[in-house]
Simulated scan of single mutants.
Amino acid sequence: MDYLQIADEVAQKIWSYNQDDSGWKLAKNSKNVTVSWKPSNEYAGNLYRGEGIIEDTPEKIIPFMYLPEYRNKWDTAVKSYTFLERIGQDTVISHTITHSYGLGLISSRDFVDLINVKRYEGGIVTTNSASVDYLKCPPSPSHVRGHNNPCGYICSPLPETPGHSKLVVFIQPDLGGMLPRSVVESAIPNNIVNLIKDTQIGIKAMC
């Protein structure tokens, strides 16, 4: 499997999502975080976009969001997050185990993802990830194996507000199992709001 080629293809998709302003519908607006959605082209579900402002620079925010030494401390949705293999300087394979949520309606999931960090002009830093098959980490009966369709973070500096950045989150997870779509659609916008708020709080605590 050519992981670097997959990473490049995923990065192109995430960037295209960020350039696409058409068809988005508001799902939630809470605590200065906006979540919108549109039908996904990747699976029979939705592509979700979350937007918020973080008080720091992209070069500090993105490592804080995806490196295990930081994420395990601030991401309240994550039970365990580790790197399984480093493919290149900016590309890794990760294993994430989530807590159950929705008052137990959604049980613990695990995901094996390829993650790539990419930089663009203007100080923009992104993560680009998608689930991959990885023989060294087979599914476990302790968790439901989920599948992340192309997802990522795009972090852009705000020249008009020095020391602040706009964070845009794109996710489109297939959670697996026998979950009613209504349960998933009600849970995901809340999870995105919590993710961005946890980032805002966590990065302030680190500084």
Rank of each mutant, 00 (worst) to 15 (best):
G202Q: 12
K166V: 07
S94L: 14
I196Q: 00
D56F: 06
H95Q: 15
R109C: 15
L47P: 02
D90G: 09
H143G: 00
L195N: 10
D90W: 02
T34W: 04
P162N: 11
K204Q: 09
E69S: 01
E59T: 01
I188R: 04
V35S: 01
F111C: 00
C155Y: 00
G176W: 02
C155W: 01
S140R: 06
G152W: 02
G88K: 13
M206P: 14
V112A: 03
L179F: 01
L158P: 07
I93K: 11
L114N: 10
L167F: 06
Y3G: 14
V184I: 14
N128Y: 12
E59S: 07
S165C: 05
Y3K: 12
W24S: 11
C137A: 10
L195W: 10
M65I: 00
Q5H: 13
E160W: 11
D75N: 11
Y153V: 01
T161N: 15
Y153M: 12
G123V: 07
I192M: 07
K13D: 09
K28Q: 02
I6P: 00
C155Q: 02
L105C: 05
D2T: 02
L175Q: 03
P138Y: 05
E59N: 08
T91V: 00
A7W: 03
P189C: 01
N191A: 02
T82F: 10
Y120R: 14
H99P: 07
G104L: 09
Q200G: 04
Q89T: 12
Q89Y: 04
S100Y: 01
S186W: 01
N46T: 03
V35T: 04
P180Y: 05
T127I: 12
Y3T: 06
H95S: 14
D113N: 07
Y43F: 10
F111D: 10
Y66C: 13
T91S: 01
D21M: 14
L158V: 15
S186H: 04
G104S: 08
L84N: 12
G88N: 12
I53H: 00
T126P: 15
G45R: 00
P139C: 04
Q89M: 12
D75F: 10
V112N: 00
S107Q: 15
P141E: 09
L67P: 11
S186I: 05
V112D: 00
A44L: 05
G163H: 06
S182A: 04
K28H: 01
I188L: 12
K204D: 07
L47T: 14
Y17W: 11
Y48I: 05
R86T: 04
H147A: 06
Y43A: 03
C151D: 08
V33I: 04
E9A: 06
Y3P: 08
N194Q: 08
S142M: 09
I201T: 15
K73R: 10
K73T: 04
G88I: 11
G163E: 03
S107C: 08
S186E: 06
T126I: 07
Y17I: 10
L26S: 13
T98N: 04
L195C: 08
D198S: 05
G146H: 02
K38P: 08
N148H: 03
V117P: 08
S94E: 07
I6K: 04
D2A: 01
K31E: 13
A44H: 06
F64M: 10
R145C: 07
G202R: 14
I14H: 13
P173E: 03
V78W: 08
I61F: 09
D174M: 06
Y17G: 13
I124D: 02
D56C: 11
G23K: 09
G23M: 10
S107L: 15
I6S: 00
